[in-house]
Computed example of a mutant assay.
Amino acid sequence: MNRKFDFDTPVNRRGTGSYKWDIVKEDDVLPMWVADMDFQTAPAIINALKKRVEHGVFGYTQVPENYYNAIINWFERRHNWHIQRDWILYTSGVVPAMSCVLKAITLPGEKVLVQTPVYNCFFSSIKNNGCEVIENQLVRQGNTYIIDYNDFEQKCADEKTTVFLLCNPHNPSGRVWRKEELAKMNEICMKHGVKVISDEIHCELTMPGYTYTPFAAVNENCLNNSVTLNSPSKSFNTAGLQIANIICNNIILRRKIDRAININEVCDVNPFGPIALEAAYNDSDEWLDELKEYLYDNYITLKKFFETNLPNLKVIHLEGTYLVWVDISETGLSSEEAEEKLLKEGKVLINSGTMYGQKAGEGYLRINIACPKRTLLYGLERIKKVFVNL
């Protein structure tokens, strides 16, 4: 396939302060864990940042009006979601945004509902705000997951449950929630007075045949009962530039959230984050479309490799994200035993499923496939070496 952009050439990230690559000191360990990509970001972003660096002065930053226009136009163009300027509050990241919204709309001792297995920072953000995690465990059905709506409603009906923290698309199950699923979850939430916080950081990263639906764009009820968190960071590999947005149409709720952002001192951003967002949303559609094709090809490569070489590893169907959820229960190893064995014997770092829920994640691993194909194949061979005789 002829591509305009290069995703095949490896970029040496060691010694750059990379959390993904430099946290493990052994040079022979291959990291396939934390959710950032091993690709250079879109050329338009690099060029915009170079221009800003050449200016040479990096003082306190005011976010310009063009920043808001870029967000509004992107979600209108790509996702048919009509955002108004006043709905947008910027901050330094989706996790700080999550914590600020939780501070604004919950009280210590209340319960926050999550769907496990789920992104590990959901647990820490909830607990750090003095709230209790309550789980609606997703149900494995064949090679995918579905929602147990009876259990979901039972958990929402608990008088202490005030917030549902949604992951859309879902990390690590790989589900891209359908419009009717989102509407049904909100219907249950509204019935029981539960607000929805929707983390949509992976929103652009869908596989062929799947369409991301913003929770707030489903219908008026979803819009009025929710707060959306998003960022270009996952899709354009710009997490280190620290920029994210909270989108909320409710003015009273938005004022509380804005107050929480200021109280927690995450109201200022660096000079590069807004510039990167504008370049991503204004000038990088083509790069993103090619990236998604490359990620899908990597997913198919991994799936075929396991089917051929390690049929006891069952790959959960990937609808979105670049994080593959793999059932390793037939190996006889626990998730943490497998993680340790892969690191010691295979020199490959992969996340234990229990990071995403002790019960819901047991028997699984999460593998990051956002890397050049040769790197992926290298990692798969290391996994094979460890698991082939189990």
Rank of each mutant, 00 (worst) to 15 (best):
Q115N: 11
T211V: 11
C167F: 02
Y90Q: 00
Q358V: 13
Y145H: 03
I350N: 01
V227T: 15
Y68S: 14
Y68W: 06
K160W: 12
K341V: 05
F272Q: 00
V269G: 03
N66E: 13
T211K: 08
F123P: 05
A217Y: 05
Q115V: 08
Q115E: 11
G17C: 06
N168K: 07
W81R: 01
W33P: 06
H202Q: 00
K25L: 06
Y90V: 00
N47D: 14
S226M: 01
N230H: 10
T213L: 10
D199Q: 05
V101Y: 05
R52D: 07
Y378M: 14
G361P: 03
E381L: 13
S329R: 04
V218W: 01
G59D: 14
D36Y: 06
I261Y: 03
A97I: 09
P169S: 08
A48I: 02
L318K: 08
S99A: 08
K384L: 06
N186E: 13
V196I: 15
C156A: 12
G15E: 03
N73C: 06
Q358C: 13
S329T: 04
S99E: 15
K184D: 14
L229R: 01
V24I: 09
L302E: 00
T41L: 12
R13T: 12
K373C: 03
K160D: 14
L30F: 15
C371A: 12
N47W: 13
Y296M: 04
N120Y: 04
L318P: 05
S173G: 13
E339N: 09
S92A: 09
A244D: 08
D151I: 08
I263E: 10
S231D: 04
I328S: 02
I45L: 03
D285Y: 05
M37Y: 03
N129I: 09
N129K: 13
G93I: 01
H55C: 10
R178Y: 07
G59W: 05
E204M: 07
L365E: 07
Q84V: 12
V112Y: 10
D36G: 13
T9Y: 11
F152N: 01
I23V: 15
D22W: 04
N262S: 13
L349H: 12
N69W: 01
D151W: 08
P108A: 11
V386C: 07
R140F: 00
R366G: 09
